[in-house]
Nucleic acid binder design. Structure first.
Lengths: 199, 199
DNA sequence: CGAACAATGTTGACACCGTCAAGATAAGCA
DNA sequence: TGCTTATCTTGACGGTGTCAACATTGTTCG
């Protein structure tokens, strides 16, 4: 019943849709992701997906949500293996940017206008985002305590600004504004030097 | 011949299209800007705009280009009236962010994926962007000389990172990821503190 | 002046898109 | 068994960008 192709019911359409959508996203970007093509890819009629996702926006939110969870797990693993040292922060930054580059389309969904401005973020998505940010602020606090980051403001504020800086870097690389890879790691190094406290 | 409505030829369609597009952009965002609606608004047939812009992408590039020029003039005026002081830098940052907020849709066109990744930036647009960035780097150099910004790297590198930070802040505000205005100016203040050299 | 030509406008058509409404099919349960 | 509900289907509507073919106008030159 699961792998059969002649069944009227698909079996696990919800997940299949997410998988196929992920693939299209990676290969063709959001612009190449349409509900019709998606349905076709999965081998189902145009409107079948609407029984699993309210609309396209809901599908995208689901993808972004998965992105948040993966990113959070990704980074959590790193933090567990090291203290609040400057080296850990550096690695954190590199991981963050690597994630943004390796999953640029999902990253765009997570933080871009498609969902947050043009569309409407699902409640679940908002929760995921908020949770991720809280974890981030928590670690910022630790880095402040250990003197890696400046203590001239609350961890919330420092969390906001450092994240904004990281995000800006990620966006410029992702959106094709900095097309050349040249000097990219130098930029990151300089950015880290800027973010860390100068004693 | 100019203001008449019964003429077969419009008279100044090119500019009229840009004006109308600007208006739609401001009121409804890029999502609400379609070539057909645009043509309708100007009172011309669907495909008339294609005699003035190769395609929608070209139109958007033109809008973004105008944005660059306006921004550059905007900021140039500021710089002319003040030296390379920290106060000038602060004002610069505020102006930059204000521009991003007050012209969020154009800002998005100038630096967003719509043109730079999904579409193809016109040669003219690329020139405008490059020119603006060069001016930016030039001023960064002056601020470095006067000790406002750090001298631990080239003006190009510092220009890239400070701009990335600013850009990140702008994006988060624009894209609706930071919906509340609360503490926004505090964020900016902290960001400036971070960017300026700590003597 | 008039004819040729280029610029600018028009309608028609095509292939997409998101999504709603109504009906078909299957699964779960009484 | 039959009823309900979840799932999937086809059909349809209004929207999109843009190409091809044709109409009109302004320009230029013999």
């Amino acid at each position: 019943m699961k792998t059969s192709k002649k069944h009227y019911h698909h079996g696990d359409l919800n997940q299949s849709l997410l998988n196929a959508a992920s693939l299209i996203l990676r290969n063709e970007g959001v612009e190449g992701l349409s509900m019709r093509k998606l349905a076709d890819q999965v081998g189902v009629s145009r409107t079948a997906p609407y029984h699993h996702f309210k609309d396209k926006n809901a599908l995208l939110c689901s993808l972004a949500e998965a992105g948040f969870k993966q990113q959070q797990a990704d980074l959590q693993a790193l933090a567990d293996n090291s203290g609040a040292t400057r080296e850990a922060f550096t690695q954190y930054v590199y991981r963050y940017l690597a994630y943004a580059q390796n999953h640029s389309e999902i990253y765009d969904l997570m933080f871009g206008r498609t969902i947050w401005k043009a569309g409407e973020p699902t409640a679940e998505l908002q929760n995921s985002a908020k949770s991720t940010f809280k974890t981030w602020v928590y670690w910022i606090g630790l880095w402040q305590e250990s003197g890696v980051l400046t203590q001239n403001n609350t961890s919330l504020r420092i969390g906001q600004t450092t994240w904004a800086s990281l995000h800006g870097l990620a966006r410029l690389m992702i959106d094709g504004v900095y097309p050349d890879q040249t000097g990219q790691s130098e930029m990151v190094e300089q950015m880290i030097r800027n973010l860390c406290s100068h004693q």
